[in-house]
């Protein structure tokens, strides 16, 4: 019985779309999607081990089914080909927070992401996302303030570092933000064009 369903559901999918390849819309263009590499890929490991998936999905449903399109989560629905180069697919089944398939387009600022991760209340008041302060360190200001130090708004006096100190991202925070910025759906595929 189980072998039937395994062949029916999984083996047949392997046969149907197990050999999908990146494809260019027009001749001469770069075939899409392209693999994620470098710091962004390291950031994905942080995304995985912190368990972001348990509140954030990475899939855009078609226009007309749910409000994904109206909420601006993507210009088109995602299709199997979008995921073929990912070593681990993080579709997710929970949207306690918004979908993140295109967060790199919606929030292109690294500073925004750092403030949001440090304390989500700064950028998203009323959010129930946990603060990831442990991905940041408070250090004594050296000769000059670090260029990547967080600028915490005056409306959050309790989050300000002590006099003479600054809050800077750790390597892991930088990697995670790099990953979030890389989440984009800015290319078209033959089977999924924009505004579909």
């Amino acid at each position: 019985m189980l072998a039937f369903s395994w062949s029916g559901l999984i083996l047949s999918s392997v046969i149907q779309f197990g050999d999908l390849k990146p494809i260019a819309l027009n001749e001469g263009e770069t075939p899409m999607p392209i693999a994620r590499v470098g710091v962004a890929q390291q950031g994905k490991e942080i995304y995985i081990d912190q368990g972001c998936l348990y509140c954030h999905s990475q899939q855009v449903r078609r226009k007309g089914y749910g409000a994904d399109w109206e909420r601006g989560w993507g210009d088109r629905q995602t299709v199997p080909r979008d995921y073929i180069l990912q070593d681990r697919v993080l579709l997710g089944t929970s949207r306690t927070g918004p979908d993140l398939m295109t967060i790199g387009q919606r929030q292109p600022s690294a500073d925004w992401h750092h403030l949001h991760l440090y304390n989500p209340q700064i950028t998203s008041p009323g959010s129930i996302m946990p603060p990831f302060r442990y991905l940041y360190k408070t250090q004594k200001i050296g000769d000059a303030p670090s260029p990547n130090a967080l600028t915490i708004p005056d409306t959050f006096p309790e989050e300000q570092p002590p006099e003479g100190y600054e809050i800077v991202p750790t390597e892991r925070a930088d990697q995670l933000v790099e990953y979030l910025l890389s989440l984009k759906l800015d290319y078209e595929l033959p089977e999924s064009r924009f505004a579909q």
């Binding site: 999984i10 999918s13 392997v14 779309f17 199997p80 995921y83 990912q86 681990r88």
Partner: peptide, 9 residues
């Protein structure tokens, strides 16, 4: 790992 969303399936 299987390819793409076959993992999700």
């Amino acid at each position: 790992p299987a390819r793409g969303t076959i993992q999700a399936l």
